Simulated scan of single mutants.
Amino acid sequence: MTRQKILITGASSGLGAGMAREFARRGRDLALCARRTENLVALRTELLAAHPGITVAVRGLDVDDHAAVPKVFDELRAELGGLDRVIVNAGLGKGARIGTGRADANIATATTNFVSALAQTEAAMSIFREQKAGHLVLISSMSAVRGLPGKKAAYAASKAGLTALGEGLAIELRGTPIKVTTVQPGYIATDMSGRAGDTTLLTPLDKGVAAMVAAIEHETVRASVPQWPWRVFGAVMPLLPRALMARIS
Rank of each mutant, 00 (worst) to 15 (best):
I127T: 12
G150T: 05
E130G: 12
K132W: 04
V115W: 11
T182Q: 05
I171P: 00
P177F: 07
G168H: 08
A123D: 03
A144M: 07
L136S: 02
K151H: 08
T111F: 06
G168I: 08
A108S: 10
L173A: 12
L118Y: 10
L138C: 07
V115T: 14
T100H: 04
T121G: 03
A124E: 04
G95M: 02
V137F: 05
T163V: 12
G95C: 03
A103G: 14
M142H: 08
A156V: 02
I127N: 01
A154F: 10
L165P: 10
G150K: 07
S126F: 00
A153R: 01
G134T: 08
S126H: 05
Y155P: 05
R97F: 01
H135G: 01
A160V: 08
A153K: 03
I98H: 05
G134A: 15
S126K: 09
A123M: 07
S141T: 06
A117S: 13
G93S: 15
R102V: 01
E172F: 01
T111A: 09
T109M: 11
A123T: 09
G134L: 07
L138G: 09
S143F: 15
S141A: 08
D104G: 12
A123W: 01
A105I: 07
E122M: 11
A110Y: 04
L148W: 00
I171D: 15
A170C: 08
E172K: 09
L162Q: 09
R129T: 15
A156I: 04
E122H: 12
K151Q: 11
L169Y: 14
I171H: 12
R146E: 09
L138D: 07
R97H: 02
A124K: 03
G147A: 14
G175W: 08
S116G: 06
L138R: 05
G150R: 13
G175K: 12
K159T: 14
A119T: 02
E122R: 15
M142S: 11
R97K: 09
I171C: 11
A133H: 14
A154C: 11
M125Q: 08
G134Q: 05
R129P: 01
S158Y: 12
G175L: 12
K179R: 12
S158Q: 10
A124Y: 02
A103P: 03
A110T: 08
I178Q: 07
P149S: 14
G175P: 05
T181V: 03
S126G: 13
T181R: 01
F128G: 11
T163Y: 03
G168T: 06
A105C: 11
E122G: 04
A117E: 07
G99Q: 06
E172P: 00
A154I: 10
G134N: 06
G101Y: 03
A108M: 03
T111Y: 02
L118D: 00
K151M: 10
I98L: 13
I127D: 04
L165A: 13
L136M: 03
S126P: 00
V145E: 08
K152M: 09
I107D: 14
R174K: 14
T112L: 10
F128L: 14
G101A: 07
L136H: 02
G93T: 15
K152A: 09
N106Y: 07
I98A: 03
G147W: 01
S140Y: 04
